[in-house]
Amino acid sequence: MPVEIDIAKVASLARIALSPEELRRYGDQLGAILEHAERVQQLPTAGIPPTSHPVPMTNAFRDDVVTGSLPLADVLAGAPEAEDGYFRVPPVLGDS
């Protein structure tokens, strides 16, 4: 059974503007892929810890040393729009 998903909500969370037609298509495709991915649920995993990192390591830190920053020209070189040393964007709606 393909998995039913609220694809519009997912697209909104992922911040991708999709047309109703695209939403429907991706929704169908994801449903089919998830039907396959759901197979992971067949394996009993009670008491099994998750693996987030394949090679167990801890405490990878760096010393508190200033190693420098990029020249401003490099920082803004790729900017779609810049003004007075700032990145410029259209007005921001929400607040976070």
């Binding site: 992971v40 394996l43 099994i48 810890p49 998750p50 987030s52």
Partner: peptide, 15 residues
């Protein structure tokens, strides 16, 4: 938990 979490536990089993 059903998807990402479970996949990570399966990852442990494979390891």
């Amino acid at each position: 938990d059903a998807f990402y979490g479970q996949a990570q536990r399966v990852r442990t089993l494979i390891r």
